[in-house]
Design a protein around this nucleic acid. Structure first.
Length: 254
DNA sequence: ATGGCATAATTGTTATGA
């Protein structure tokens, strides 16, 4: 199973690029984040024509997550089933694997209400994992975590040290998710790679490769053992009207 | 020190992202 995760920064604004990319990359599963649209205006039919089913948890203007899959996704779960008003998590079972697409809150700046919400959300997500799974299950958590796990995941760590993307509390929260029993499969396969998944639209960040690795695929060890390849598709950040994020890949021999 | 760029709500401006 070839799976990818991509924060597309509006599924409607990105539709042409997204469909072209699907035609050439042909993943079995694609986790999407930042749809910025409701389910009633999600382009289900267009994805169907490309051979993909869609499980969607939409929201107007902000957030929104989805899972596209060639095989029909089942047991679809939208959100944690509590009062979180933001559409940031969707789960579905595909080929016996529980797949979760997450869009972790950005947090704006350390010390703000948004930062507190980010940390609360990560804690809630950890509880969700603890309550619903064991590390022995076949589970994948894919998405935009809005945290660069370590300094190796940042082109210029000093410049980003005070950023909410490198916040020690946020890093600790993501580390706790890994410690529960999830492996960052890209980092596991490429321990020394300086590779990024997000570049600011401003300041010529992409041509300068001033990026951060904020998007990743986490797998329980049972699945991580079956991981045959991982990569980041830097080319998808090039050209006209790109998302500020680029897709990340993992392949599993199930 | 600030803004820089992009998107969606709308049509002039704001909220948010990372």
């Amino acid at each position: 199973m070839k799976i990818a995760s991509w924060n597309v920064n509006s599924v409607k604004a990105r539709y042409d690029r997204l469909s072209q990319w699907l035609k050439s990359a042909r993943p079995d599963v694609l986790c999407l984040q930042e749809l910025k649209t409701q389910e009633d205006s999600f382009p289900f039919e267009s994805f169907e024509e490309l051979g993909y089913n869609a499980a969607v948890y939409g929201q107007k203007t902000y957030n929104g997550v989805a899972i596209l899959s060639r095989e029909q996704p089942v047991q679809i779960e939208r959100g944690f089933g509590d009062e979180d008003p933001q559409a940031r998590m969707i789960a579905a079972t595909i080929a016996g694997v529980r797949v979760v697409s997450v869009y972790v809150p950005n947090g704006q700046e350390i010390g703000t209400d948004k930062h507190a919400y980010k940390l609360r959300w990560l804690k809630r997500f950890t509880e969700y994992l603890e309550e619903n799974f064991t590390p022995r299950k076949q589970l994948l958590v894919c998405g935009d975590f809005n945290i660069a796990p370590d300094d190796i995941d940042v082109a210029h760590p000093d410049a980003w040290a005070e950023s909410v993307l490198c916040d020690p509390a946020g890093r600790a929260a993501v580390a706790k998710i890994r410690e529960w029993g999830l492996v960052d499969v890209f980092r596991h396969q490429h321990p020394d790679a300086a590779a990024y998944s997000w570049w600011d639209y401003r300041r010529l960040s992409f041509p300068k490769n001033d990026g951060l690795r904020l998007d990743y695929i986490l797998a329980t060890s049972r699945l991580a053992k079956k991981c045959t390849a991982t990569s980041i598709d830097r080319d998808a950040r090039k050209g006209e009207k790109p998302s500020d994020h680029t897709p990340v890949f993992a392949e599993f021999d199930l």
